[in-house]
Simulated scan of single mutants.
Amino acid sequence: MIDFNNSAFFKMSRIDPKKIVGDVQPLMVQNEQIVGAYKAMRDYVVFTNMRVIAVNIQGVTGKKKDLTSLPYSKISAFSVETSGTFDMDSELEMYFSGLGKVKFEFTGSSDIVQIGQIISAYSLR
């Protein structure tokens, strides 16, 4: 599993989910749909209608992948920090029962408010 306390997820930008669906599709269940995907250099995060899937690309060739499933139902709290005038980056912090804090940073071009709405819609059910 990804060590979220020591992991340095670089600032992520929105990507077309079609580019990574082949990697996460085997992990997805019936009626689960991708609602957004964000990528750093090699690693990426996929938001579905049921969970967040964090993908850590490993090894020189990148064929080895660590996929971590973070269900919305286990979120006890989350925080969204929007970009400002001088600080163009935004952040998402989620607190999972049994796991603790998971933090992702996004470039200013990412729609952090939309990400917050997705998490609200699915975690508050």
Rank of each mutant, 00 (worst) to 15 (best):
P71Y: 08
Q114R: 13
V35L: 01
S7Q: 10
D111Q: 12
I115N: 02
T48H: 03
A77Q: 14
T48V: 04
G36V: 02
Q25T: 15
V45D: 02
F9I: 06
V45F: 05
L99E: 04
T68K: 11
V102D: 07
V60P: 04
G98T: 09
I2H: 03
M41R: 11
K64D: 01
N56W: 06
F4I: 03
I34M: 01
K18Q: 11
F47M: 02
R125K: 07
G59N: 15
F86T: 14
N31P: 07
V29A: 03
D23I: 14
D89Y: 13
S76M: 13
F96W: 06
L99F: 06
R125S: 00
D111R: 12
I118C: 03
M1T: 07
G116A: 05
I112C: 05
Q25Y: 13
G22P: 13
I2A: 02
G62F: 03
I119A: 04
G59L: 04
L92A: 10
R51L: 00
S69P: 06
L70I: 03
Y72H: 03
K11G: 07
F47H: 01
F10D: 13
Y95I: 10
P71G: 13
A121W: 00
G84V: 08
I118R: 02
V46G: 01
S110M: 11
M41H: 11
S110K: 12
G108R: 14
I112G: 04
V46D: 01
